[in-house]
Amino acid sequence: MESTTSDHAVDIDHHVRIYITVFVALMVLTIVTVAVSRFHLPVPVAVGVALLVATVKGSLVACYFMHLISEKKLIIAVLALTAVFFIALMALPILTVHDGYWIH
C-alpha cells in the first residue's frame, strides 16, 4: 500500500513537470505569434502561420491540461464527431464562392 501511494505521488510529480514545460511553451508561442504579426506578411501567409501556431498551442492545452492524450476512447470518439461537424461548419463559407460572393 505504501509503495502504491508513493508511485501515485511520483506520477503526479511527473504530470506537474509536464504542466510547467507546456506553460513555458505556450508563453513562447504567444510571443512568436505577436512577433510574426509584426512582419506584415501577405494575408494568406499570415493567416496560415497564425492558425498553425494557434493550433499547436490549442493542441498542447487539450492534450496535456485537459488530459486528452490519455483520455478514454468514448471521449475521443465524441470529439472526433465534433471535429467533423466543426470542419463542415468552417467549410460552409467556401460554398459561397460558387455564388460569386468572393468575386469583386
Partner: peptide
C-alpha cells in the same frame, strides 16, 4: 480569438 481578431 487572439490572433484572428487582433493580429490579422
Amino acid at each position: 480569438l487572439f490572433p484572428t481578431l487582433y493580429l490579422l
